[in-house]
Amino acid sequence: MKVRLVDIAHARSGDKGDTANVGVIALKREWYPILVRELSERRVADHFRGVITGSVKRYELPNLGALNFLLHGALDGGGTLSLKTDAQGKVFSTALLRMVIDVPDAEARSLGLPSA
């Protein structure tokens, strides 16, 4: 089953130099393992291909049901150098939530995941 990330998680993003961070938080605690399994560094790097120039690093926060991603080379130099509208990476959060993931039907049903 196709599941839209925006239907199972919320997020906030910010900046540190030329790096954007995106914290992704499961809307229900029991959905957190789905995020851990589906949102690998590689998957997120693929998602942002053509948008960021650097690598992706992931950290897990099971205590908050959240993942933290560092997206390097995301902000055209960052801060005052950047010419971008989103020079401080404020809406990389919603850009990540555009992702659609595949979850096996039975598992999606048992977890009550909303279908895309």
Binding site: A11, R12, N21, G23, Y59, L61, P62, N63, A66
Partner: peptide, 25 residues
Amino acid sequence: TEQLVYEMGDPHAYITPDVVADFTT
């Protein structure tokens, strides 16, 4: 929680002059 993850780096080591806080706790 949204604010906790804002501008976060490595959550195991939030470095300040006084202490290194572990946000995974």
